Amino acid sequence: MEKKELKEMSFLDHLEELRWLLVRSTVAILVFATFTFFVSDYIFDVIIFGPKSPDFITYRFFCDLSHQLGFADSICVTEMPFIIQNIDVEGQVNILVWTCITAGFILAFPYILLQLWNFISPALYENERKHAKLFIFIASSLFFLGVLFGYFVVVPMSVNFFATFKVSDVVQNQFSFDSYIGMIKTSVIASGLFFELPIIIYFLTKLGLVTPQFLRQYWKYAVVIILIVAAIVTPPDVVSQLIVAIPMLVIYEASIFISSIVYKNQQKRDGQLS
């Protein structure tokens, strides 16, 4: 099946479609942000400040794992020696607004993907455009899985590391509200977007910008980068770094596999057309 003729729409028409994509996506984010505003107490007290408590589910999991491995309380979290303070007059208001917008973006992500799919689908083959629901389901699932990974793995490890790290006992950890929230938002959103790597590689391969050979060639560099990232966001122990690095390596390997499938299919299609 041939692709839909892109000449049916001018460059300005494409810009208009892109503008409406952004408008509809922004409206969806604001709608969900408004909803999260009414449950902001739960978002802050339970979700955002959850990793600040030694009873957080991730800390309890590692403590139980430590006991089962015979390490006693070596990786148990018993206290969080830091406080969070607001140092700006309008700080809490700004953080409330931007936290709701961030939550709105996360909740609206499937709708944003739908708008993105409608924008790029004319450039796809007819049989590919039929997979819209599958694309949205897989891409959304990967994003939400990445968000959960960021929140339950990356965030608590980062919070625990920075809470207990001291250059001297003279210095007390008193984190600003803005920096604490920023770390959580960055970890969660970055993890969610990283888990979209297979989807991104799929389209880059279709566009001819990436090949499986290229991804394999730079595999060792990707491993080094992933290990460096894992070392930065986790405490300085091998177990924690592996817990963060292994899922990221799996995602990268899955991207190579997907790129290989797309590349082979394109080679077959080009061979049939020739």
Rank of each mutant, 00 (worst) to 15 (best):
K220R: 15
Y221I: 08
R19V: 02
Y252A: 08
E16T: 10
A132L: 11
L193E: 10
A132K: 13
E16Y: 12
A103E: 04
F152C: 04
V153Q: 12
Y202W: 12
F56T: 04
A33N: 07
V244R: 03
I120F: 01
K133T: 14
V46I: 09
I101W: 06
Q217I: 05
M80V: 09
L6P: 00
G104I: 00
Y252D: 14
V155N: 03
Y252E: 12
L207N: 09
D13F: 02
L12D: 13
F119E: 09
V250S: 03
T186D: 09
Q85F: 11
Q172P: 15
A72R: 11
F175W: 10
V223T: 10
S66K: 02
Q213C: 10
L207F: 08
T78Q: 10
I200T: 13
I181T: 07
L145D: 06
V239S: 12
F49H: 12
A190Y: 13
V153D: 11
S259P: 15
Q267P: 04
L69Y: 14
P110C: 08
V244A: 11
Q85A: 10
F82S: 05
F144H: 08
F162K: 03
I261K: 01
L65H: 11
C100F: 12
V31G: 00
A222W: 05
K130L: 12
Y125F: 13
T186C: 06
F11Y: 12
S187G: 10
M183C: 13
P51G: 11
T205G: 08
F194E: 10
I136L: 07
M248N: 08
R216N: 15
I201Y: 06
V155E: 07
V229N: 10
F82N: 05
P51I: 05
K220F: 15
L18P: 11
V89T: 04
E128G: 13
F11C: 04
G150A: 00
S255Y: 10
Q174S: 06
I181R: 07
F257A: 14
V238R: 02
V27L: 01
F44Q: 03
P236K: 00
M9P: 14
I106N: 00
F38Q: 00
V154N: 01
M183P: 15
A190V: 12
I112N: 00
K133V: 11
I48M: 09
Y151G: 06
A163V: 07
D169F: 08
Q172K: 11
V89C: 01
F162R: 01
I43S: 05
Y125A: 05
G50Y: 14
V224F: 14
I199F: 00
V147P: 02
F109W: 04
W20E: 12
V229F: 15
L148Y: 10
T99N: 07
L142I: 02
N86Y: 11
M157F: 15
R216A: 12
A231Y: 13
V171D: 08
K3Y: 04
L193Q: 07
D73G: 08
Y221P: 15
